[in-house]
Structures are given as structure tokens and as C-alpha cells.
Design a protein around this nucleic acid. Structure first.
Length: 438
DNA sequence: TCTGGGGTCCTAGGACCC
DNA sequence: TCTGGGGTCCTAGGACCC
């Protein structure tokens, strides 16, 4: 092989959702913040480091997190629009150094900066510090960075660097770096694979590399086994590349209480089809397969799917197929979760003679107009964005008994004052997450 | 008050075709 | 008589990721 050494950067935002909330609502800056569904079956989607200090973790049931949360803690519903705006700011900045970004999620990406080809560890360290500093100064958020000769090691390195850290793994030391770490840190080894490996006495990545190819394959499967054993040795020449085409869109919901009748399940599935269809149209795709997913009271999951001869984006066709695939709760038991997915996606065939010259936004509106009427205003809820005629932008800190308390502050305002209004005060309007960035 | 929501990828069996 | 073989598509389930 040979050639100049490459450097892969893995950038991972620290406690991203919670940090976005703390950035735009300065009163929360030093407080335990949880982001996630507040309902009876919600889980924690994001937790600030102040919340983690109390043992709260991502994916923990909210009911459990609530018991651990100290009195000054706050639970907020997610504001994905805000997270997307801030994510774009961060990665636009990184893209100035690396034309190719492999975005894993809103808060995580790989990059392979051309300027680092053949660079020394010290130079890579300098580069990482610069990027972290710029993100802190220009966006206001903290990123941790791992750097190494390949993606897997770079990713493990950024995990080890957290919080607020930078770790460069010298080229040639990848294997020694990984060897003492538990198998679970590897991207691709989850609870099941970890358990299988433990059963044959393998707990560390060093022990995994010592396994024969045959043993790795018989324990982890032919594809995964061979790949992971090789990655555990630190050998990883997979390219950093833009993510592949979208393969499916979906929408799913966990009900506060299990559904037991077909009529209400049918209604819910229709709503889910509306949401999934919106995503389909947004992505500019047509689908050939409809998948309905149900989870029962015991948490076991069943899927039913059907594939059409030709792909479509017609709502009625997709939704009625989803309804036909439903199973009656009477024979299924209580339904805890329902989901609708459209897969087998493709870009619609455009016959040049019949191409519609309708702008995407209009096409979107047309399809959205088939959906049920938007939800009517049902009062203020904690976490809502608010704009007041005089006081400007803020957020709902608490609501109840016909009153609502709003704290007026934004990213640049510093901690703001709280004022209380009646729920119906005409001076209050619903705000937009973008307002709090100014 | 046990266990979200949006995805990707892999496996395995049966239908179907040549 | 005693049972081809390869390839692709579809369906269902499950591991894993953030």
C-alpha cells in the first residue's frame, strides 16, 4: 500500500441537545437539564453534565430520571429545529477544512482534512484545538475530537476524550491503544455481541484480536465477526464518504396507554402514515414497500409488509395499504407502539414530456393539505418558545391554573427575568426556535 | 410510572425463474 | 424415479447506532 499517512477526525458534540438548550436559555447554563418526552413512557434523549452527575444517562426511562433529578433540574421537550440550525453552523465551519464530511447524526461526523495528509501528531493536535476553539467561539458549543489513522480508532478516541477534550492517537500505536479497552467500546459491538464474547472469555479488544478468524466468525457471524476482529487490531482503511441514499422513511409512536381496539389503532396508523408520507415527499422520493410495526404489552415487536409493483407517493394508496396490514388488537393483545415505514425508495421517474414544473414548496403544500387540519392551540406548556410584543423572545418556564410564566432571554441576552401572564394574554405569541439564537 | 424515535445493515427461509 | 443448482426478490426478525 504505502502512500502518505492519512488522518481521520471524529467530531462529537458534548451533551448536544442539552447544551443547545443551555446556550439559548442562559438561566439553565449551570443547571441539570433533561431533554426528552415527559409522558409516562418517555425516555431521556439528552442530559447535561450537571444532570449526569446525579447518575442520569441518555436512554434512561424518564420516570427513573425524574427521581434522580435534583429540585433545580429542568425537563424540556426536544426542539429539533434548533438542534438542526446549530448542527449546520458547526458542520459548515468544519467543512471549511474538509470538503468531504460523513455526518452520522446531528452531533457527530467524520472528516478527512486534506491539509492533514502526512501531518505529524503535533500538527493534528494543533488542528483539533483550532477547530474546537472556533466552534466554542463562533457557535458557543463544546465539541470533543478524536483523531487517528482510521474511523474506528478516531471514534473511540473522541469517546475517551470526553468531556471537552481532544485525543490524537499516534500512528502505529492503534493496536496498543485499543487492546486494554472493553469490547463494548467498538462501534458495532452492542449488548448481545458483548455477551457472546464474554461467554467465550473475551472481555477486551486485545483478547478479541487474539481470537482465530474461525472463532470470531462462529461467535459474531461471518460478516460482522471478520470485520470487527480486524478493526480491533486498529486496521481500518474505510473511506470517509457522504452517507448513502436514504433507504426508508418512517414514523412511530408509543402510546401512553396500550390500545385495545381496532378503530383507534386504525386512526393512529392513519396519523403515522401522514407523518411518514410528509417525510417521503420532503425527501422527493417514491416508495414501493409499506411496513407496519406493532409492539405488544410484553415489548415484543411484529412487522407486516407488502410490496407494490410500482412505487408511489400517493397518500391514499400508501395509507390504505398500511391499514390493510394491521392486526386486530383483539387477537394481538394490547398495542404499546405502532409504526409505519415506507421503504424501497427511489427517485420518481420523470418523463420529460410530462414533467411538472411545480416548485417543491408548492408540491409539499399540496400534499400536506390532504392531511388532517393542524392541531389547535391548546395552551402553553413548559419549554414552549414565546414572543411577547414588548419583552421579546423567551420560553415557558411553568404553566397552570390559567397562568403562564415566561423567562425572557436568548443566546446573547444573559440570564433573563421571568414574568407571569394569564394563559390567554393576547400579547403572547408562539415563538420559533430560531428566535432564541439571536 | 421500565424500556423513545429515527435510521442502517445482516440473516434466513420460501417463492419463483431459468 | 428419490430429488440440480444458481440467482433474485420478498418477508420477518433482530442487532446496532445516535
Amino acid at each position: 500500500m504505502g502512500g502518505l499517512d492519512r488522518w481521520v477526525i471524529h467530531l462529537d458534540m458534548d451533551a448536544f441537545y442539552a447544551s443547545c438548550e443551555q446556550l439559548t436559555r442562559p438561566t439553565l447554563a449551570e443547571r441539570p437539564v433533561l431533554v426528552g418526552g415527559a409522558g409516562p413512557r418517555g425516555v431521556v434523549a439528552g442530559a447535561s453534565y450537571q444532570a449526569r452527575a446525579h447518575g442520569i444517562r441518555s436512554a434512561m426511562p424518564m420516570s427513573q430520571a425524574r427521581r434522580l433529578l435534583p429540585p433545580n433540574g429542568v425537563i424540556l421537550p426536544p426542539r429539533f429545529k434548533l438542534y438542526e440550525l446549530l448542527s449546520t453552523q458547526v458542520f459548515d465551519l468544519v467543512a471549511q477544512y474538509a470538503p468531504v464530511l460523513e455526518r452520522i447524526s446531528l452531533d457527530e461526523a467524520f472528516a478527512e482534512p486534506p491539509s492533514l495528509v502526512g501531518a505529524t501528531s503535533a500538527e493534528v493536535h494543533e488542528f483539533g484545538s483550532l477547530v474546537r476553539e472556533r466552534i466554542r467561539a463562533e457557535v458557543g458549543l463544546v465539541a470533543s475530537i478524536g483523531a487517528a489513522s482510521g474511523k474506528q480508532v478516531a471514534k473511540v478516541a473522541s469517546d475517551q476524550a470526553k468531556p471537552d477534550g481532544l485525543l490524537v492517537v499516534d500512528q502505529g500505536t492503534e493496536r496498543d491503544f485499543l487492546a486494554p479497552l472493553p469490547t463494548r467500546v467498538l462501534w458495532g459491538i452492542g449488548p448481545v455481541a458483548e455477551g457472546k464474547l464474554r461467554a467465550i472469555g473475551v472481555r477486551t479488544l486485545g483478547q478479541l484480536t487474539a481470537l482465530s478468524d474461525a472463532d470470531a466468525v462462529s461467535t459474531l457471524g461471518s460478516v460482522v465477526g471478520r470485520d470487527l476482529r480486524r478493526l480491533a487490531t486498529g486496521v481500518d482503511d474505510r473511506p470517509v464518504s457522504d452517507r448513502a441514499e436514504l433507504k426508508q422513511v418512517s414514523a412511530e409512536t408509543t402510546f401512553d396507554r396500550d390500545l385495545i381496539d381496532l378503530a383507534s389503532l386504525r386512526r393512529e396508523v392513519r396519523d403515522l402514515a401522514v407523518h411518514a408520507h410528509k417525510r417521503l415527499v420532503n425527501a422527493g422520493r417514491v416508495a414501493r414497500t409499506v411496513v407496519v410495526k406493532l409492539r405488544d404489552t410484553a415489548f415484543s415487536t411484529v412487522t407486516r409488509s407488502e410490496t407494490m409493483a410500482t412505487p408511489t407517493d400517493e397518500f391514499d394508496q400508501l395509507a390504505s395499504m398500511a391499514e390493510r396490514l394491521l392486526i386486530d388488537p383483539a387477537e394481538f393483545g394490547g398495542v404499546r407502539l405502532a409504526g409505519v415505514a415506507f421503504s424501497g425508495l427511489s427517485v420518481p421517474h420523470q418523463d420529460p414530456l410530462f414533467t411538472l414544473s411545480v416548485p417543491v414548496s408548492e408540491a409539499l403544500e399540496t400534499s400536506v393539505s390532504k392531511a388532517p387540519a393542524p392541531v389547535v392551540f391548546s395552551g402553553w406548556r413548559p419549554g414552549d418558545d414565546v414572543v411577547h410584543e414588548e419583552h421579546g423572545s423567551g420560553w415557558v418556564q411553568g404553566a397552570g391554573h390559567g397562568r403562564v410564566t415566561v423567562r425572557f432571554e436568548t443566546r446573547t441576552s444573559g440570564p433573563g427575568v421571568a414574568r407571569t401572564f394569564t394563559q390567554e394574554d393576547p400579547a403572547l405569541r408562539r415563538g420559533d426556535p430560531a428566535d432564541c439564537l439571536s
